[in-house]
């Protein structure tokens, strides 16, 4: 059935383009990046092809799918509601701060940002900018072509995967850097959980923070003193720079590597957004324990005071 349809989208007499990579685009999907006279572009969909315009009645073809999907979701939600209870913790107590106190899961990405930068940036400016940029996508990529197909172009899937991996590697590296880099101003003796004593000399260390202030911001204070300007550099300037630089580099990498057009650049930017959202949400949900310290999910204990 599906195979029939795929075939039917090909204009008659046009052979399918050779497709060396298994996860290449579907036959018939257009490549926006190549000009019309290149034969390897693959067949273009032609509106005139009668098969492409085959119409079906909404009743029953669509209405039945909607009914089945609705029943499926109602049934699944009911089943879940029978098995898992919604949480109701202790009565609110302004005197007792739970540790950790986390936002609902969909805001944990933002709460993760909050650990690394100024709250105005993490809580207000970044989400506002993200919403505005999302809404702006169709006004930047205003070419009508490439709609109605998954990933639009020959390189769409590859760009998505590349951008997602690129984003995750950057962000994981930064999170780990911010967690384990510990500047120490004067000689300190730490008492570890095992009771062991550990002498730490002044300087910049790479270690588990053990409650010492850690990360890029204190490193900056350590190196350049505590003037308001250096505080601002650590918690506003450097994070802003990174948040612009990482997608900016991605944009140019995609452009050079894939000779990307605007649609493909948008794919890389959206993939950057969605990969960041997913990664930061997972880190915030499953890898942050007491005092929002980075830890493995199996080391996380239930919050205190909740």
């Amino acid at each position: 059935m599906a195979e029939e349809e795929v075939k039917s989208t090909r204009p008659q007499g046009v052979a399918p383009a050779p497709n060396p990579k298994a996860n290449g685009p579907q036959p018939g999907s257009p490549s926006l990046s190549a000009p019309a006279n290149k034969p390897e572009v693959g067949p273009k969909p032609k509106g005139k092809a009668a098969d492409d315009k085959e119409m079906v009645f909404v009743w029953p073809h669509l209405v039945s799918i909607e009914a089945i999907a609705s029943l499926f979701f109602i049934f699944s939600l009911s089943l879940m509601s029978l098995l898992v209870n919604a949480p109701l913790r202790n009565l609110a107590n302004p005197e007792l701060t739970p540790n950790p106190s986390k936002a609902p899961w969909y805001f944990l990405g933002l709460q993760e940002l909050l650990l690394h930068m100024h709250p105005a940036l993490a809580g207000v400016i970044v989400p506002t900018a993200v919403l505005i940029l999302l809404a702006a996508i169709p006004y930047i990529d205003s070419d009508r072509r490439g709609s109605g197909y998954w990933f639009s172009t020959r390189n769409g899937v590859r760009i998505t995967v590349f951008a997602a991996l690129y984003t995750m590697v950057w962000e994981l590296a930064l999170i780990i850097l911010d967690e384990f880099i510990v500047p120490v101003e004067k000689a300190t003796t730490l008492i570890l959980e095992s009771g062991e004593k550990l002498s730490v000399s002044p300087g910049v260390h790479w270690m588990n923070p053990h409650g010492l202030s850690h990360g890029i911001k204190p490193l900056f204070l350590h190196l350049f003193g505590r003037a308001p300007l250096t505080v601002a550099i650590g918690e506003i300037f450097i994070p802003s720079l990174l948040m612009v630089l990482i997608p900016y580099l991605l944009w140019h990498l995609i452009k050079r590597r894939y000779q990307a057009n605007t649609r493909e650049l948008m794919i890389s930017m959206y993939s950057f957004f969605i990969a960041s959202f997913v990664l930061l949400t997972i880190i915030g949900t499953a890898f942050r324990g007491h005092s929002m310290a980075l830890m493995w999910p199996w080391h996380i204990t239930p919050p205190i005071g909740i």
Partner: peptide
């Protein structure tokens, strides 16, 4: 629900809003 989860999520949220420039 006005439980601990609710109260402290709102505390975090409104403190973030307070950081609006």
């Amino acid at each position: 629900p006005w439980d601990q989860l609710a109260y402290w999520a709102i505390t975090v949220g409104s403190n973030m809003a307070k950081a609006t420039p």
